[in-house]
Computed example of a mutant assay.
Amino acid sequence: MKIGFVGCGNMATAMISGIVKKGLVARADLIASAKSEKTLDKIGKELGIRAAADNRQAAAESDVLILAVKPVYMEEVIEEISDAIRPGTIVVTLAPGKTLKWLDATFGKPTKLVRTMPNTPALVGEGMTALCPNEFVKPEELAEVEKIFQSFGKTQVVPEPMIDVVVGVSGSSPAYVFLFIEALADAAVADGMPRAQAYEFAAQSVLGSAKMVLETGKHPGVLKDMVCSPGGTTIEAVRVLEERGLRSAVFEAAKACVKKAREM
């Protein structure tokens, strides 16, 4: 299986690193295109894969072609590569807001399409990706695409209307978590802890808490209650978070994110 990337930014780099680390395909079977000379240099020297001369070469040589470009450039890229894609090639998109219907109309011909929404924790092998295929993708082909994304995290196949919801709950949410970690560390610094140490304490706490949710199967509320001793320090902190509207702020932020994704 030959895998190509049009665009090689942070997400594509994370994906390529995961594919190589897992040994999913040989480096020689990976190719990527990019606009800037700096990125082209990274493709060869840092990632150790082939740099395409242009987007059309990446498209022509791929069994699975991943369009890792921003939504604003998607139409331009598709128009450029559409006739270079071989019959049977599976085209995977990462961009929010570009529906299967829109993609099909833009390609202008029957094309095997898989919409996906990964997130940046793929950079450390802990990504979460939603996938949604169109009617031309066979189950065994979808399974191959899933293997690609499972090389750097977990996957779930979802109905297309859920893709925008995924943007809010996992696609964009690392930013919310980073903001929380930064604020938690700032508070520790204000109380005298060195900043590097504060970031480690805060980040490890978030990592461990997330693992507890995933590995125990217990409701987050139950896990929260386990930490909150009667009359203790934790319940006092929770009281302030509730008073300041943390739960509502997160709720509204995620809904605003989904709304924006649906409008793109």
Rank of each mutant, 00 (worst) to 15 (best):
M1H: 03
K2T: 14
I3F: 01
G7T: 08
A14C: 09
I19H: 07
K21H: 15
K21F: 09
G23N: 06
L24H: 03
V25T: 04
A26V: 13
A28Y: 01
D29W: 09
D29H: 12
L30V: 08
K35Q: 11
I43W: 00
G44N: 12
G48L: 02
I49T: 08
N55H: 01
A59K: 09
K70A: 06
K70T: 14
E79N: 12
I90F: 06
V92S: 08
T93H: 10
L94W: 02
A95K: 03
G97C: 06
K98Y: 08
K101F: 02
W102S: 14
L103P: 07
D104G: 15
T106P: 03
T111K: 05
L113V: 05
V114G: 02
T116N: 08
T129G: 07
E135S: 15
E135L: 15
L142N: 05
F149L: 09
V158L: 13
P161S: 04
D164T: 03
V166F: 01
G168W: 09
S170H: 10
S173Q: 06
Y176L: 14
I181R: 03
E182K: 10
A188E: 00
V189C: 12
Q197R: 15
E200H: 15
F201A: 15
Q204G: 10
L207D: 03
H219R: 06
L223R: 12
D225F: 01
P230T: 04
A237N: 09
V238D: 07
R239S: 14
R239W: 13
V240M: 11
R244S: 13
G245L: 07
L246F: 14
V250T: 10
F251C: 13
V258A: 00
K260M: 05
E263N: 12
E263F: 10
